[in-house]
Design a protein around this nucleic acid. Sequence first.
DNA 1: ATCACTACCTGACTGC
DNA 2: TGCAGTCAGGTAGTGA
Length: 281
Amino acid sequence: MPELPEVETVREGLLPAMEGRVIARAEVNRPDLRWPLPERMAERITGARVERLRRRSKYILADLDTGESLLIHLGMSGRMLVSGVMLGGFHLDHPAPQKHDHVVLQMEGGARVTFNDARRFGAMDLVRTDREAAHWLLAGLGPEPFGNEFNEEYLLERLKGRTMPIKSALLDQRILAGLGNIYVSEVLFRAGIDPRRAAGKIAAKRLAGLVPIIREVLAEAIAAGGSSLRDHRQADGELGYFQHSFRVYDREGEPCATCATPIRRIVQSSRSSFFCPACQR
DNA sequence: ATCACTACCTGACTGC
DNA sequence: TGCAGTCAGGTAGTGA
């Protein structure tokens, strides 16, 4: 499911329930998600105060006052749902337990955070906050799209000589962190670049244009609460609505908004790519 | 090194 | 209704 905008949306929704609050009780209902959960996880986070809730790429990091950070990845189908808080003048009541509620955090003050993940491609780990960057899941990640390290020179340098299709290159989290299958298609449409083009053979000027377009698409999606196709929910359970702004993703056969040519779907690296064969060259 | 492909797991949907 | 087949937003590991 979740690419950078969905994860950022979830983080923002968790803030009022988690940041500055103490984890009163932790329920860990199975020993593993995609990988084993940390040893004695419930014990290590119980009684800890969440000092800050951050995002790195598609990961959420809850910095605890114990010196450790809880690292959370939603995989494809993971959700973090908040209950027991006031929102927009309404109280979010605790829902009945659901199948696949793998971890439940009962916060002091009455809020509850439930991690639900049907496919279990998600992950959680505990890492010493001062060594977080060296964590095996974070160590190889490329720059954040909104950070200063991501700029035209960087992108040109990283893609120079690469024969891989630009679609695959932008999906590669070592090159740029945060884009997934949906937003790569949307970005390449707005940039007018064919997803099959070899990354290293695209004119420098066109590659440079990708930098502001990537930021624009991601910022719009965050403002819309992400995209809800199947699984994604904001932390309060609401759907995101950026899917209504898709120009190409999941629109095979529909007319291009610019030129009315039918949108095409192809498979690259075993993943669907959507594009307009007339607008994207 | 680079790249394509597979596996991981469950649920929703399609077609017979 | 039911059953088999297909597909899904991510990422690590494999083998060419």
